[in-house]
Computed example of a mutant assay.
Amino acid sequence: MSSGALVAAVDIGGTKIAGGLVTRDGEPLHEVQVPTPAKGEAAEVLGAVHDVLDLLAAHGSWGQVDRIGVGSAGPVDVVRGTVSPVNIPNWRGFPLVERVAAHPAVGGRLPVVLGGDAVAMTAAEHWVGAARGFANALCLVVSTGVGAGLVLNGKVYAGPSGNAGHLGHITVDMDGDPCPCGSRGCLERVASGTAIAAWALGRGWRPDGDDASAAAVAASARAGDETARAAFDRAGKALAAGIAATATLVELEAAVLGGGVLQAGDLLLEPLRRHLQTYAALPFTHGIKILPARLGTRAGLVGAAALALG
């Protein structure tokens, strides 16, 4: 296998589907993106994935691709090659690996490796990002949802089905809101960008314009809006509880946080670190480093490539 061979990487989320051609050093050479028709029929969502593959296959370097890595919102089943993203309701047990392998530009000649999007982000940050050098770490994606992955004993640990570390769907509020996953009070229902904006709106916050997003809440918080600041404090508190619980189970050195909500910076990280001092109470959970991810929006693609490379 040529050392110069490329990996075609696809990152499927509830908002966008990204694609890239990634080198063996973890560097994306070419990137494309299309919106996710998340509420569309299964074939429509697959069509968007195929559009990304079409765009990648049209690039002059496509001939150097020797494998495909796919990171998808989950849950996933890496044994069966299927996905059931919480935020894509018409994909339940969807045979994604089979359908990607059947794309004309793939034609069954390239191996397709599937992983959860948060596991992919974890693989990326451990390979070339903020988790590099840590033997035991938790990596979180805080965006439309909340996903996470684990590094244990120096290796990404995905678990038998590929869903280990699925922290966004642990309960942090016993009497909390119902979650699309079927549970209630999930971390994702408190700390995701969607949840931050919804909580602030429900308590009287109003955006300056039509943008009722977590970014707009952050702008209001920076301007001194107390409800907006409280929304980020609440999210940071929930994340601290989830990180502390994970550290109690597996003993962590670091937690790396990425995703669009992290653009809020210390509005989220300061309360997270403060509340972590309360929740990480046992001596062996002290000293967890809370670090911002380094790869930004590229983490999903780099991570999908890392999973494909094994």
Rank of each mutant, 00 (worst) to 15 (best):
S220K: 00
A228L: 00
R234A: 12
A255Y: 08
A254R: 02
E226K: 13
G259Y: 09
F232E: 05
G236I: 04
T248Y: 13
D233F: 10
A235K: 01
D233R: 15
V256S: 06
T248P: 02
K237A: 14
L257K: 02
D233Q: 12
F232G: 05
A223N: 12
E226W: 01
G224C: 00
L249I: 08
Q263Y: 03
A228S: 06
R222C: 07
L249Y: 11
A223T: 10
A255F: 02
G258T: 12
A235Q: 07
S220L: 04
F232K: 02
G242S: 13
L262Q: 13
F232Y: 14
A221I: 02
D225E: 05
T248A: 15
A221P: 03
G224H: 05
A245Q: 12
V261R: 08
A221V: 06
G258I: 00
R229W: 09
A228V: 01
G259R: 07
A245S: 14
T227Y: 03
A230Y: 08
A228F: 06
T248G: 15
L239R: 01
A241I: 10
A238I: 03
G224M: 01
A240Q: 02
A245C: 06
F232W: 05
L239C: 07
R229C: 08
E226I: 05
G242Y: 13
A241E: 14
G259D: 06
T246V: 13
I243N: 06
L262H: 02
A231Q: 00
I243H: 04
L249Q: 11
A228T: 00
L252I: 08
T246Q: 01
A219S: 11
A240C: 06
D225A: 11
T227A: 11
D233N: 11
A254V: 00
A228I: 02
E253S: 14
R234V: 03
A247M: 05
T227C: 09
A254L: 05
G260D: 08
A255W: 05
T246G: 00
L249N: 06
G224R: 02
D225N: 13
K237N: 15
L239M: 04
D233K: 08
L257T: 10
D233T: 14
A235I: 03
G260V: 04
A240N: 10
A228P: 02
G236L: 02
D225W: 03
A238F: 06
A230M: 13
L239K: 10
T227F: 11
A231C: 08
A240W: 07
A228C: 01
E226P: 14
A255V: 00
A221N: 07
A240S: 10
T246E: 03
E251D: 15
T246Y: 05
L257E: 10
T246P: 02
E253W: 10
E226R: 13
V261F: 12
A238G: 15
R222K: 13
V250N: 01
V256K: 01
R229M: 08
T246N: 04
A230T: 10
G258R: 01
A244G: 09
V256Q: 01
L239E: 09
